[in-house]
Design a protein around this nucleic acid. Structure first.
Lengths: 111, 111
DNA sequence: CAACCATATTACTAGTCAGCAATCTACGAG
DNA sequence: CTCGTAGATTGCTGACTAGTAATATGGTTG
């Protein structure tokens, strides 16, 4: 729908690529998906994702630096939330591509 | 809008991540952007993008394997086109995130 | 046929990064 | 203050990959 007003200088391209890279990691996608239902602390994310603590913490820094999640500190705990729902727009489009691809592949095999 | 019907098994997550990874590269985003105006041969892409020939060829294989571009052979030349416009939906959403982020940063600096 | 051209592939190097273990920091409880 | 816990940070290693030069493939021309 809305075409961005940003001109695609190499710098902007690099920034966009950097953001796609954040989503190019199964571990980070898993974390974002865990957060889909709402706010979670780091240790809850460790439990739900099955990833190691240091690993989750590092991935969260990446997601936070790029604005995908927000942070809230409460005593010993740090809670993370999705910054907005555009992450799911992105994943939905990508999943749509995947489904179309698999459907096309099935059609080929059916011949 | 449309929520995918795919369940997010680790396998599906890996496939989605793999597709985001294809977009996580300035060179590939540049190539896709060159193709925005229409079909181009490899050597035209080399000229427009400023990348090396082997490099462009390799990136095109990646984009082709993941269904982002289609290929058409004509004599000595091979022409590539965007498979569909969902790439731009993805980039537009990402650029929207970027703009919002920069606007927020400007607001912070203005204080 | 041989020479030539566009594209693909291969082999290599340098840089990046996920995962993990160990450590550090900050906070709360007793 | 001391101990324990949650989370962040650091150092390391193994795996992956972008870029490039050299070469291979496949098609066209003379």
């Amino acid at each position: 729908m809305s075409v961005s007003k940003l001109s695609l200088t190499p710098e902007v391209v690099a920034l966009v690529a950097e953001r796609f890279k954040a989503l190019a990691e199964p571990a980070r996608l898993t974390i974002l998906n865990c957060l889909r239902s709402g706010e979670l602390s780091v240790s809850e994310l460790v439990d739900e994702s099955g990833l190691g603590q240091a690993n989750v913490s590092k991935h969260l820094q990446v997601l936070h630096n790029l604005g995908f999640v927000r942070r809230r500190k409460d005593g010993l705990f740090v809670y993370y939330v999705l910054a907005d729902k555009s992450v799911f727009q992105l994943c939905d489009v990508m999943c749509g591509r995947l489904e179309a691809e698999m459907k096309a592949r099935r059609k080929l095999l059916a011949v």
